[in-house]
Design a binder for these strands. Structure first.
Length: 244
DNA sequence: GCGACAG
DNA sequence: ATCTTGTCGC
């Protein structure tokens, strides 16, 4: 499939006199933005996020995304699984080098370029993308999952393994239990127990899904391990291709 | 001002 | 993310 963006905003050239901002088409842009530009871009794109129900029953293909690193190199992986059987039906990897530092809150600017490259190499377009990280649960409500979703105009959601922002009460110990993740008085995600007695994962929407749909899908994709199968497969594949 | 801070 | 061994438990 093609990860080309669909943004129909006016180009920066239509606002002469304003400070130069990175194109909304990033990461298609040749150069990575500055930290200041990156934050400004997030604030500009955050209003594009749409929360809407996703008919999980009709989801057939789910993609998991992840990136592994070692000494100046990285490998991004996109793996497509059957939602019904959790079997891998397609996958793609891309080897590259980090071109943006790890900065909390700007994760997307580090991982989106290699991830969209990997997605471009997929031959099977999935119904939804599961990101390793957060979406709405972000200081500017525009984490990696939101950025990818708006870029592709496709359903996305984020699953984090450790809390980033917000506060959540510990969910009941049973698998399926959850508690709201609240930041600044706003529900931005959920702490979700995917395995009884095991620490929860943190789910937030990316784009074109709502929190109920995202929760249901994550539970369905994590029948036996804490981390959803699509992410586990992407993690394993990227690590293998890295040679670690 | 200080600490915390997705991967 | 990555650096790192064994160990307790299902």
């Amino acid at each position: 499939m093609n990860a080309s963006p669909m943004n129909s905003e006016p180009s920066p050239s239509t606002t002469p006199g304003s400070p130069t901002l990175p194109s909304t088409l990033w990461p298609r842009a040749a150069e990575p933005p500055s930290v200041e530009e990156a934050r400004a871009l997030q604030e500009r794109l955050a209003p594009e996020v749409r929360a809407q129900p996703l008919d999980v029953e009709r989801v057939e293909l789910v993609a998991g995304l992840d990136v592994s690193y070692t000494e100046g190199r990285l490998v991004a992986a996109a793996v497509v699984l059957s939602a019904r059987t959790l079997e891998v039906v397609d996958s793609a990897t891309v080897a590259s080098e980090p071109r943006f530092p790890y900065v909390p809150g700007l994760f997307a600017f580090r991982e989106l370029p290699p991830l969209t490259d990997a997605i471009d190499r997929l031959g099977t377009p999935p119904d939804v993308f599961v990101c390793d990280g957060f979406g709405l649960a972000h200081p500017r409500r525009f984490g990696l999952a939101c950025h990818l979703g708006v870029l592709l105009d496709r359903p996305t959601l984020g699953v984090g393994k450790t809390p980033f922002i917000g506060r959540a009460e510990p969910p009941a110990p049973e698998r399926g239990a959850w508690s709201p993740l609240v930041d600044d008085g706003e529900v931005v995600g959920r702490a979700l127990r995917t395995r009884t007695g095991v620490k929860p994962v943190y789910v937030s929407i990316g784009h074109r899904v709502d929190l109920d749909s995202a929760t249901e899908l994550v539970l369905r994709m994590a029948p036996s391990y804490r981390v959803p199968e699509p992410i586990r497969r992407a993690d394993r594949l990227s690590r293998d291709r890295l040679g670690v």
